[in-house]
């Protein structure tokens, strides 16, 4: 779905660069990109969507080269983007108008827009709010409306740049549940950028960025079991993973790649 080939990028003022990034994200995958602020993860997301263009190397989105100007709208149609601040992404005053904004700009027929708006809002669980003013929504609800707006464009892939950073625990859970559902049921490829490790445990794959470089890549179990490496980067590991490590150091016979609470409960009950 997204492939980068020896990607290099530098801001005009030289303040930051991405170096030699090779990433290959398959159709239907759920990939999480983690890294602390300034590691390059948001820059990468903007490159995936053609907002920035590489200085050298290539990025292919759905086999289309992002540096080909004629393809840029096709690229953005197939890879939609969600940003951190819910308030910055809502353009209309009423929920359904906001979701219809994208397809309207594609000059799609009225009845088809109606179908898409209804279906998208149902998918994200916001259909009951269809006629509500967007200002009356909570942060998590706004993010789900923004996701519905992307869905109405029928993308193959959605890139989410810290979509839960400004939400409370309930809003965060709702958004996470929504994007997992899109991945499983609608087979949409998900690229989720976050620094909440609990949101990374259900991914197919995690990519860790640091100082503009890709420094780790693997399944959540492979990444988080490297507790020391991850923490040295200024990132968290799930509390149960840390606990498993500490128990192992105490001589307890327990796997050090435990990342979920229920897994830990099972393991500990077997030990008893």
């Amino acid at each position: 779905m997204i492939k980068t080939d020896k990607l290099n990028f530098e801001y005009d003022d030289g303040s930051f660069k991405l170096e030699n990034i090779d990433i290959n994200i398959d159709d239907g995958e759920f990939v999480v990109i983690i890294g602390h602020n300034g590691s390059g993860k948001s820059t990468l997301a903007k490159l995936f969507n053609g907002i920035y263009l590489p200085n050298s190397g290539k990025i292919y989105v759905n086999k289309m080269d992002t540096s080909d100007e004629e393809l840029i709208w096709e690229i953005r149609k197939s890879a939609g983007m969600i940003f951190q601040n819910p308030d910055n992404q809502i353009v209309a005053t009423i929920v359904e108008d906001d979701v219809a904004f994208g397809p309207e700009n594609l000059a799609i027929e009225r009845s088809e827009i109606r179908n898409r708006v209804d279906k998208s809002l149902k998918t994200v669980g916001m259909f009951d709010y269809i006629n509500k003013p967007t200002t009356s929504l909570s942060g998590g609800q706004k993010q789900r409306v923004a996701i519905a707006g992307i869905l109405a464009m029928q993308p193959k892939c959605i890139i989410l740049d810290e979509p839960t950073a400004m939400l409370d625990p309930v809003g965060r859970k709702d958004v996470m549940r929504t994007i997992h559902k899109l991945n499983k049921e609608e087979k949409i490829t998900i690229v989720h950028i976050t620094h909440f490790m609990n949101e990374a445990v259900d991914a197919d794959r995690i990519i860790v960025m640091d100082q503009g470089k890709k420094i780790m890549e693997g399944t959540p179990k492979e990444i988080f079991s490297r507790v020391k490496d991850v923490r040295n980067l200024g990132l968290d590991v799930p509390q149960v993973t840390l606990l498993a490590h500490m128990l192992k150091d105490e001589g307890i016979n327990i796997d050090d790649d435990i990342i979920k609470i229920d897994e830990m409960v099972e393991k500990l009950c077997q030990l008893k």
């Binding site: 509390q239 149960v240 609470i261 500990l268 009950c269």
Partner: peptide, 30 residues
């Protein structure tokens, strides 16, 4: 997470009475 973990362990027949606040305390209790 660790507070939830202890709670779930107790539901499965453990008998951990302490309320744990962090990973270190959970380790000691377990």
């Amino acid at each position: 997470q660790v507070t939830e973990l202890i709670n779930k362990l107790n539901l499965r027949g453990c008998n951990i009475k302490e309320t744990v606040l962090n990973v270190e305390e959970a380790k000691n209790a377990i």
